[in-house]
């Protein structure tokens, strides 16, 4: 049977000191599965291994036991450049400190993610421009250093999403933001993941976040075999997960996987106006010719 899940974890175990067998596992997850469009919040106190789990999932760290399947591919069986390329193409990562490339424009930052994809070079600029504008960045050529924290977060989100990943890993995405910006940012991430039909695994200890996620689980619960139940799981439970594993608390919500039309502006949660925000920046700046050309092209495509 073909593995259709965005993320599947099987018996994943990790501790920092490989040879200290007396040490408890930092990560010990018997099973976890997420399909495209699923969204889950992973909670847990600081230093409990939430970020480590994300690094294991994306293949930046290797487990001592078990395997992680992303889009059906066992990521730890890939080696070197193969694994890096796979990560670039299938996984989008959003960090607490955004980790934008210093000295590069927002557009360059987003295009940096496309550098390592199989998307033709000729499309990079258009695609990155569209993604940034879609997320409310009116001046893609502006350097993130000159943007507000909220805008920097949007650039980071655009970079994570531009390659159409199957899985988005968000590591404390709201930790650097004030409550209002945090609310906007998490909504933005959730909406874009839904629009792109990507699974979202968010780790956070932000007390405001659980209310935003229907599915939430702590690392301790995962270790005990507690699993969140997504709509898809109920429809078609994976063969590897046994019936004996208890379900996560909280009601499962039917995932809405209907991407909004392209004109939908995810940043303002409304339709993209055809005229005003495209020709002029937020401060009324006239966009440069190249940016205009890109936008005009996009508008033309949309109208077609």
């Amino acid at each position: 049977m073909t593995d259709q899940s965005a993320l599947r974890i099987e018996n994943l175990k990790f501790r920092y000191h490989k040879r200290r067998k007396s040490e408890p596992w930092v990560i010990d997850i018997p099973a976890l599965q997420m399909h495209r469009g699923d969204q889950m919040l992973l909670t847990g106190g600081s230093g409990r291994g939430k970020s480590t789990l994300l690094h294991l999932i994306c293949g930046l760290m290797d487990p001592l036991q078990g395997e992680t399947y992303v889009d059906g591919t066992p990521i730890h069986s890939l080696h070197g450049a193969q694994r890096d390329l796979f990560r670039g193409k299938r996984i989008g990562m959003i960090f607490q400190s955004f980790n934008l490339l210093h000295g590069f424009s927002a557009l360059d930052n987003v295009m940096a993610a496309l550098m390592f994809s199989t998307i033709p070079k000729g499309e990079h600029r258009k695609r990155a421009n569209y993604m940034l504008r879609h997320l409310g960045i009116e001046h893609p050529r502006r350097h993130p250093d000159k943007m507000s924290i909220g805008q920097q977060q949007r650039v980071a989100v655009a970079r994570a999403m531009v390659c159409d990943p199957v899985l988005v890993l968000a590591d404390e995405p709201t930790a650097s933001l004030d409550p209002e910006n945090a609310r906007i940012a998490i909504k933005l991430i959730q909406d874009i993941c839904q629009e792109k039909n990507a699974a979202l695994l968010c780790v956070s200890h932000d007390p405001a976040l659980p209310e935003r996620f229907e599915n939430r689980v702590s690392l301790d619960e995962l270790a005990k075999g507690v699993l969140p139940v997504f709509q898809d799981d109920q429809a078609s439970p994976p063969e590897q997960i046994t019936d004996s594993i208890p379900l996560a608390t909280g009601p499962a919500k039917e995932a809405i996987i209907t991407p909004p039309p392209e004109e939908h502006d995810i940043a303002t949660d409304g339709p993209i106006e055809d005229d005003a925000p495209i020709e002029l920046g937020l401060d009324g700046d006239v966009l440069d010719e190249e940016a205009k050309a890109d936008v005009n092209l996009e508008v033309k495509e949309n109208t077609e």
């Binding site: 450049a81 890096d84 390329l85 796979f86 670039g88």
Partner: peptide, 10 residues
């Protein structure tokens, strides 16, 4: 960051 984005070590 480049590594996360898919850039290989080589």
């Amino acid at each position: 960051v480049l590594r996360v984005l898919g850039c290989s070590q080589s």
